[in-house]
Protein backbone atom coordinates (compact mmCIF):
# COMPACT_ATOMS: atom_id res chain seq x y z
CA UNK A 1 0.00 0.00 0.00
CA UNK A 2 1.27 3.45 -0.93
CA UNK A 3 1.59 5.88 1.99
CA UNK A 4 1.54 9.55 1.08
CA UNK A 5 2.51 12.67 2.99
CA UNK A 6 2.29 16.41 2.45
CA UNK A 7 5.57 18.23 2.14
CA UNK A 8 6.57 21.85 1.67
CA UNK A 9 10.07 22.77 0.61
CA UNK A 10 11.95 25.47 -1.23
CA UNK A 11 13.35 24.40 -4.58
CA UNK A 12 15.70 26.82 -6.30
CA UNK A 13 14.20 29.64 -4.28
CA UNK A 14 10.56 28.78 -4.97
CA UNK A 15 8.24 27.34 -2.31
CA UNK A 16 6.70 24.06 -3.43
CA UNK A 17 3.97 21.99 -1.74
CA UNK A 18 3.08 18.49 -2.89
CA UNK A 19 1.74 15.19 -1.63
CA UNK A 20 4.39 12.49 -2.11
CA UNK A 21 4.70 8.75 -1.57
CA UNK A 22 6.98 8.00 1.40
CA UNK A 23 9.21 5.87 -0.78
CA UNK A 24 9.81 8.50 -3.46
CA UNK A 25 13.43 9.63 -3.65
CA UNK A 26 14.17 13.32 -3.67
CA UNK A 27 15.77 13.11 -7.12
CA UNK A 28 12.68 11.36 -8.54
CA UNK A 29 10.44 13.97 -6.94
CA UNK A 30 12.43 16.74 -8.62
CA UNK A 31 12.51 14.98 -11.97
CA UNK A 32 9.01 13.52 -12.13
CA UNK A 33 6.95 16.03 -10.15
CA UNK A 34 8.77 19.28 -10.83
CA UNK A 35 10.25 18.38 -14.22
CA UNK A 36 13.70 19.41 -13.06
CA UNK A 37 15.45 16.70 -15.04
CA UNK A 38 18.97 18.11 -14.77
CA UNK A 39 19.72 15.94 -11.74
CA UNK A 40 20.24 12.46 -13.09
CA UNK A 41 19.24 9.16 -11.53
CA UNK A 42 22.08 6.78 -12.32
CA UNK A 43 22.87 3.85 -10.05
CA UNK A 44 20.11 4.66 -7.55
CA UNK A 45 22.03 3.25 -4.64
CA UNK A 46 24.42 6.03 -3.78
CA UNK A 47 27.50 5.02 -5.74
CA UNK A 48 27.65 7.10 -8.92
CA UNK A 49 26.95 10.66 -7.78
CA UNK A 50 24.89 11.64 -10.85
CA UNK A 51 22.01 12.70 -8.58
CA UNK A 52 24.08 15.08 -6.43
CA UNK A 53 21.92 17.93 -5.08
CA UNK A 54 22.32 20.64 -2.52
CA UNK A 55 20.09 20.46 0.54
CA UNK A 56 20.33 23.26 3.11
CA UNK A 57 23.63 24.27 1.53
CA UNK A 58 25.26 20.82 1.70
CA UNK A 59 25.65 18.37 -1.18
CA UNK A 60 23.75 15.09 -0.83
CA UNK A 61 22.84 12.07 -2.91
CA UNK A 62 19.34 12.63 -4.32
CA UNK A 63 18.76 8.87 -4.46
CA UNK A 64 19.67 8.37 -0.80
CA UNK A 65 17.24 10.94 0.51
CA UNK A 66 13.48 10.60 0.46
CA UNK A 67 11.37 13.50 -0.77
CA UNK A 68 9.48 13.34 2.52
CA UNK A 69 12.77 13.90 4.39
CA UNK A 70 13.22 17.15 2.48
CA UNK A 71 10.11 18.62 4.10
CA UNK A 72 11.06 22.11 5.28
CA UNK A 73 14.41 22.03 3.48
CA UNK A 74 15.99 24.33 0.95
CA UNK A 75 16.93 22.34 -2.14
CA UNK A 76 19.14 23.65 -4.94
CA UNK A 77 19.56 21.82 -8.23
CA UNK A 78 21.73 22.26 -11.29
CA UNK A 79 18.92 24.32 -12.85
CA UNK A 80 18.85 26.85 -10.00
CA UNK A 81 22.60 27.08 -9.65
CA UNK A 82 22.99 27.56 -13.42
CA UNK A 83 20.36 30.29 -13.50
CA UNK A 84 21.95 32.10 -10.58
CA UNK A 85 25.31 31.98 -12.44
CA UNK A 86 26.96 30.47 -9.37
CA UNK A 87 28.41 27.71 -11.54
CA UNK A 88 29.27 29.93 -14.52
CA UNK A 89 33.06 29.78 -14.09
CA UNK A 90 33.04 25.99 -13.70
CA UNK A 91 30.68 25.51 -16.63
CA UNK A 92 32.89 27.68 -18.82
CA UNK A 93 36.00 25.73 -17.82
CA UNK A 94 34.27 22.37 -18.40
CA UNK A 95 33.14 23.56 -21.84
CA UNK A 96 36.51 24.93 -22.87
CA UNK A 97 38.47 21.90 -21.69
CA UNK A 98 36.11 19.21 -22.96
CA UNK A 99 35.50 18.02 -19.42
CA UNK A 100 32.35 16.23 -20.56
CA UNK A 101 31.40 13.95 -23.39
CA UNK A 102 28.00 12.34 -22.83
CA UNK A 103 27.24 14.78 -20.03
CA UNK A 104 25.37 12.36 -17.78
CA UNK A 105 27.67 12.90 -14.81
CA UNK A 106 28.15 16.62 -15.41
CA UNK A 107 25.38 18.16 -13.24
CA UNK A 108 26.45 16.07 -10.23
CA UNK A 109 30.11 16.68 -10.99
CA UNK A 110 29.56 20.46 -11.10
CA UNK A 111 27.76 20.43 -7.75
CA UNK A 112 30.50 18.34 -6.13
CA UNK A 113 33.20 20.57 -7.63
CA UNK A 114 31.47 23.77 -6.51
CA UNK A 115 31.20 22.34 -2.98
CA UNK A 116 34.98 21.96 -2.89
CA UNK A 117 35.52 25.43 -4.31
CA UNK A 118 33.28 26.95 -1.63
CA UNK A 119 34.83 25.02 1.25
CA UNK A 120 38.51 24.77 0.66
CA UNK A 121 41.31 27.11 -0.01
CA UNK A 122 43.35 26.24 -3.10
CA UNK A 123 42.93 22.46 -2.99
CA UNK A 124 45.66 20.36 -4.61
CA UNK A 125 44.95 18.05 -7.55
CA UNK A 126 44.98 15.19 -5.06
CA UNK A 127 42.33 16.91 -2.93
CA UNK A 128 40.26 17.66 -6.03
CA UNK A 129 40.40 14.00 -7.02
CA UNK A 130 39.42 12.93 -3.51
CA UNK A 131 36.50 15.31 -3.44
CA UNK A 132 35.05 14.11 -6.73
CA UNK A 133 35.82 10.46 -5.96
CA UNK A 134 32.11 9.92 -5.31
CA UNK A 135 31.14 11.08 -8.80
CA UNK A 136 31.68 8.64 -11.62
CA UNK A 137 32.50 9.73 -15.15
CA UNK A 138 32.71 6.92 -17.70
CA UNK A 139 33.80 9.11 -20.65
CA UNK A 140 36.56 11.54 -19.86
CA UNK A 141 39.03 9.70 -17.64
CA UNK A 142 38.68 12.62 -15.21
CA UNK A 143 41.86 14.41 -16.29
CA UNK A 144 40.01 17.26 -18.04
CA UNK A 145 37.56 17.51 -15.15
CA UNK A 146 40.38 17.91 -12.64
CA UNK A 147 42.04 20.45 -14.97
CA UNK A 148 38.82 22.47 -15.14
CA UNK A 149 38.29 22.51 -11.39
CA UNK A 150 41.93 23.39 -10.85
CA UNK A 151 41.65 26.28 -13.29
CA UNK A 152 38.66 27.72 -11.43
CA UNK A 153 40.33 27.16 -8.05
CA UNK A 154 43.45 29.00 -9.18
CA UNK A 155 41.42 31.83 -10.61
CA UNK A 156 39.61 32.26 -7.31
CA UNK A 157 40.47 35.56 -5.68
Amino acid sequence: MEHEYDITLTVNGTAVSRRVPARQHLVDFLRDELELTGSHAGCEHGVCGACTLRVNGEIVRGCLMLAVQANGCRVDTIEGLSDSKELAALQKAFYERNALQCGFCTPGMLLAAQDLILKSNRPTREEIRNHISGNYCRCTGYEAIVDSIEEVVNGKS
Binding site: E58, V60, R61, A112, L116, G134
Partner: peptide, 12 residues
Protein backbone atom coordinates in the same frame (compact mmCIF):
# COMPACT_ATOMS: atom_id res chain seq x y z
CA UNK B 1 36.42 10.13 9.22
CA UNK B 2 37.85 11.25 5.85
CA UNK B 3 37.93 7.60 4.82
CA UNK B 4 34.15 7.29 5.24
CA UNK B 5 32.59 7.28 1.74
CA UNK B 6 32.35 10.65 -0.04
CA UNK B 7 31.50 14.24 0.89
CA UNK B 8 27.84 14.01 -0.17
CA UNK B 9 27.38 10.90 1.96
CA UNK B 10 29.33 12.27 4.93
CA UNK B 11 26.90 15.20 4.98
CA UNK B 12 24.00 12.90 5.87
Amino acid sequence: VPHVAHAAIRNR
